[in-house]
Measured scan of single mutants.
Amino acid sequence: SKTSNTIRVFLPNKQRTVVNVRNGMSLHDCLMKALKVRG
């Protein structure tokens, strides 16, 4: 089974995003990807 960790990230202006960290990806990469999608 694939394991994925879901991390809630609290952003300024009362924004919130959820990042799924996959195996083999660093938290930083996942964060940058999530913020790019939002931006």
Results as ranks from 00 to 15, higher is better:
1 S>N: 14
1 S>I: 04
1 S>P: 10
1 S>Q: 13
1 S>L: 08
1 S>H: 14
1 S>G: 12
1 S>T: 15
2 K>R: 09
2 K>E: 10
2 K>G: 07
2 K>T: 04
2 K>V: 03
3 T>N: 04
3 T>S: 08
4 S>N: 08
5 N>V: 15
5 N>I: 09
6 T>A: 08
8 R>G: 02
8 R>S: 08
8 R>L: 14
9 V>T: 15
9 V>A: 12
10 F>P: 07
10 F>I: 04
10 F>T: 07
10 F>Y: 04
10 F>S: 12
12 P>A: 06
12 P>L: 01
13 N>G: 02
13 N>I: 10
13 N>C: 02
13 N>S: 11
14 K>T: 05
14 K>W: 07
15 Q>P: 00
16 R>H: 10
16 R>S: 05
17 T>I: 00
17 T>P: 00
17 T>R: 07
19 V>D: 00
20 N>H: 14
20 N>I: 11
20 N>E: 07
20 N>S: 08
21 V>E: 01
21 V>A: 13
21 V>S: 12
22 R>P: 14
22 R>N: 12
23 N>I: 09
23 N>K: 05
23 N>H: 05
23 N>S: 10
23 N>D: 13
24 G>V: 15
24 G>R: 03
25 M>K: 10
25 M>T: 13
25 M>L: 04
26 S>I: 14
26 S>G: 10
27 L>P: 00
27 L>K: 02
28 H>P: 03
29 D>V: 09
29 D>H: 14
29 D>A: 05
29 D>G: 13
30 C>F: 09
30 C>G: 05
31 L>V: 03
31 L>M: 12
31 L>R: 01
32 M>S: 07
32 M>V: 09
32 M>R: 02
32 M>L: 13
32 M>A: 02
32 M>I: 06
33 K>M: 07
33 K>G: 03
33 K>T: 02
34 A>G: 04
34 A>V: 04
35 L>Q: 01
35 L>M: 05
36 K>I: 10
36 K>E: 08
36 K>D: 12
36 K>N: 15
37 V>M: 12
38 R>P: 02
38 R>Y: 07
39 G>D: 14
39 G>E: 04
